[in-house]
Simulated assay, not measured.
Amino acid sequence: MDWLQVIILAIVQGLTEFLPISSSAHLILVPVLTDWPDQGLAFDVALHLGSLAAVLIYFRADLINMTQSWVRSLTTRQLDADARLAWAVILGTIPVGLAGLAFKGTIETVLRSPVWIAVGLIGFGLLLGWADWRHKGEREVSEMRWKDVLLIGIAQAIALFPGTSRSGITMTAALMLGLSREAAARFSFLLSIPVIVLACGLEGKDLIQSGEPVNWTFMLAGILLSGVSAYLCIHYFLAFIKRIGMQPFVIYRVVLGLFLLWIFL
């Protein structure tokens, strides 16, 4: 690796982790266009840690309130809005955890090809566009029912199909269930926290077992750049989503998917 590769990959990961455009598609496209060597498992862990730090810092006040209310609910058995949201994030994470354990081998081998990623980009991108155009919901996160949470969690499990985009499919499901764009994005970002924690844990375990050498300078730079770009992405996406909608991302996904098909077919 060199510094240009570190900078580009970190920024790409930070931006695409939370935008509904599929980080897996971009992390495959970058080496195709640049002919760079694989960045290695250690750097992948660093990039995910940066994204995790960004979402934790951005939602720090919400997370503190949610954690306090969740702990209190364990003893009082009473749920205020913050406790309900904390339980919703936990419930919404269960389907993707089970699906990841059940289909990990298939996902990493059969479905990891650029063609399947292109199919996911186009197909689920069009579904996102339809959900945004057809369903003009106004419900807030606090108005979600447990059935809504479970359906969004099941949708998140579908994101294991490469090219789907975890943020994209969860926002799609939330929009179809009547949530506003801002509420759909906010819940999607909160749902990302346990998923990224699980991903970092699994990758970290593989890294320890592999004994791969670590370039700590590149690791720290990757964490910082990924974190800053992810934080800015979350901030501006939430600020402008009501005005710009999902259609620009849909167009981008379709164009990118067609480009991948043109290269690999």
Results as ranks from 00 to 15, higher is better:
residue 90 I to M: 10
residue 81 A to Q: 12
residue 1 M to V: 05
residue 83 A to H: 11
residue 94 I to V: 15
residue 161 F to E: 01
residue 157 A to H: 12
residue 90 I to D: 05
residue 76 T to M: 05
residue 254 V to F: 08
residue 28 I to Q: 07
residue 207 L to G: 13
residue 167 S to P: 05
residue 77 R to A: 02
residue 181 R to G: 01
residue 75 T to S: 13
residue 3 W to A: 11
residue 146 W to H: 12
residue 172 T to I: 03
residue 212 E to I: 01
residue 168 G to T: 11
residue 183 A to N: 06
residue 27 L to D: 00
residue 143 E to F: 07
residue 248 P to S: 09
residue 176 M to H: 09
residue 44 D to A: 11
residue 112 R to P: 02
residue 137 G to Q: 12
residue 5 Q to C: 04
residue 40 G to A: 03
residue 238 L to K: 13
residue 77 R to N: 06
residue 161 F to C: 02
residue 28 I to D: 00
residue 234 I to E: 12
residue 2 D to H: 14
residue 209 Q to L: 10
residue 9 L to Y: 12
residue 219 M to H: 10
residue 33 L to R: 09
residue 150 L to T: 13
residue 217 T to P: 02
residue 233 C to Q: 04
residue 173 A to Y: 00
residue 149 V to N: 12
residue 10 A to W: 00
residue 4 L to W: 10
residue 40 G to K: 04
residue 48 H to L: 03
residue 226 S to C: 06
residue 185 A to F: 10
residue 168 G to P: 05
residue 123 G to S: 14
residue 141 V to N: 04
residue 206 D to H: 15
residue 5 Q to T: 07
residue 76 T to R: 14
residue 49 L to K: 11
residue 68 Q to Y: 05
residue 54 A to N: 06
residue 17 E to P: 08
residue 228 V to P: 08
residue 170 T to L: 01
residue 147 K to P: 00
residue 123 G to W: 06
residue 112 R to V: 00
residue 44 D to G: 13
residue 239 A to Q: 13
residue 141 V to G: 05
